[in-house]
Simulated assay, not measured.
Amino acid sequence: MMRTNICISAVVLLFFKSALSQQFINRERGFELVRVDYTVIPSLGDIQLDRQGVNLNFFKKLNSGGLRLGLAYSRSELTFKDADESHQFGDFDNFHILRFNMSYIRPLAKNWSINISLAPTLSSNFKGALSTEDIIYTAFGTVGKQWITTNKRSSLRFGLAFGTQFGSPLLFPVLSYQKQVNEKLSYAIGLPVTGIFYTINKYNSINFRIRPEGAFVNNSNILRIAGDDRDFANTKLQLNAFSLSLGYDLQLDKHWVTTFSVGYIPTSNIEVLDDNNDVIYDFEADESISINIGLSFNINRTKNNDKNETRSRN
């Protein structure tokens, strides 16, 4: 029954490529139709995390706006280096997150817009029968204003979100200001993402991001802890982190883009909670690095692609 706020590392934002972090229109890449990625975090104290993910997206233009549908799946594996933890918490050695996202974007007068998103999420280790405890309903709603001048743009977006970006589901504010400085440089300041983005040429770009990362996974099996006579049902694995990452994007051709990033998490927690969300175990891990590689297929490129216009940052 330990509760210690200790630095650990987990680039767990890799569990959720949330639409909350979208910024400028990705004119050079187009719309991301498919993405696959792999992440390794070698040292969460005595835990290594490996994760594979795939994202599918679809966009339909409507008379009154646009509808975006997405399906994201990730499988994560925890390797416990401590034999006792491996024996007691082996139910968390593999867990899965399946999310269906529905977003509606409606433009308003004078470059204002609204964005509403609902994303029911199945988050479980699949070790027992599924229940409502394995389902998380995440959502957000924002209002935005965009300013456009010749070859430059900036925008302000604000609203509320309910999700797992900080671990256990909670309501938090969304506030983000994005600005294109010139045809190569842009930045974003706010929550949930702060970053700097630089386009070297039409094939290469780099970025630096600061953002929270989180996951909340149900154990659908009974958990028993040595020295405790109780049987714990519907325990949760909670991860929350704060990450800094440096990324590189390479445009392979007019559709395919590969990405590579190295991250560092200076502060984070990974804990097991009971069905009342009280901590029953803290893994007391240390800080770590992370490595992520990805490949995406993009469509709907425009004739202005070769002018190095501002990229959208996910």
Results as ranks from 00 to 15, higher is better:
3 R>L: 05
5 N>T: 10
7 C>G: 10
9 S>K: 06
11 V>Q: 08
13 L>Q: 05
14 L>S: 07
15 F>N: 10
20 L>E: 11
21 S>N: 04
22 Q>G: 10
26 N>A: 09
26 N>F: 09
28 E>K: 03
30 G>F: 02
33 L>D: 05
35 R>C: 02
36 V>R: 01
36 V>P: 00
37 D>R: 00
38 Y>N: 10
39 T>V: 15
42 P>G: 05
44 L>P: 07
46 D>C: 05
52 Q>S: 11
53 G>R: 05
55 N>I: 06
56 L>T: 07
56 L>D: 02
57 N>D: 07
58 F>E: 01
59 F>M: 13
59 F>E: 10
60 K>S: 07
62 L>R: 05
65 G>M: 02
68 R>V: 04
69 L>W: 03
70 G>W: 12
73 Y>N: 08
74 S>V: 13
77 E>Q: 09
78 L>V: 11
79 T>L: 14
81 K>Q: 01
83 A>C: 04
84 D>K: 14
94 N>S: 07
94 N>F: 09
94 N>C: 03
95 F>I: 03
97 I>F: 02
97 I>Q: 14
103 S>N: 14
104 Y>C: 03
106 R>K: 10
106 R>S: 10
109 A>W: 09
110 K>E: 14
114 I>Q: 12
115 N>G: 08
116 I>W: 04
126 F>H: 03
128 G>A: 06
134 D>V: 02
135 I>Y: 00
135 I>P: 00
140 F>N: 12
141 G>H: 11
141 G>D: 13
146 Q>H: 03
146 Q>E: 06
147 W>A: 10
149 T>K: 01
149 T>W: 01
152 K>F: 07
157 R>A: 07
157 R>V: 14
162 F>D: 05
164 T>Y: 03
165 Q>W: 11
166 F>M: 07
166 F>V: 11
166 F>H: 07
170 L>P: 00
176 S>C: 13
178 Q>L: 14
181 V>L: 14
181 V>Y: 15
187 Y>N: 11
188 A>L: 11
188 A>P: 01
189 I>K: 07
194 T>F: 03
199 T>L: 00
208 F>E: 03
210 I>M: 15
214 G>M: 01
214 G>T: 00
215 A>I: 08
218 N>G: 12
219 N>W: 03
222 I>F: 08
224 R>H: 14
224 R>W: 08
225 I>A: 00
225 I>R: 00
233 A>P: 02
233 A>Q: 10
238 Q>R: 01
243 S>T: 15
245 S>E: 15
252 L>K: 01
253 D>L: 15
254 K>C: 08
261 S>V: 05
262 V>K: 05
263 G>L: 01
264 Y>P: 11
269 N>S: 06
270 I>N: 05
272 V>S: 01
276 N>W: 09
277 N>W: 04
279 V>Y: 03
279 V>F: 01
280 I>S: 03
288 S>W: 13
290 S>D: 15
294 G>C: 02
296 S>A: 05
299 I>W: 02
303 K>V: 03
310 T>C: 07
311 R>K: 08
312 S>V: 11
313 R>V: 15
314 N>H: 13
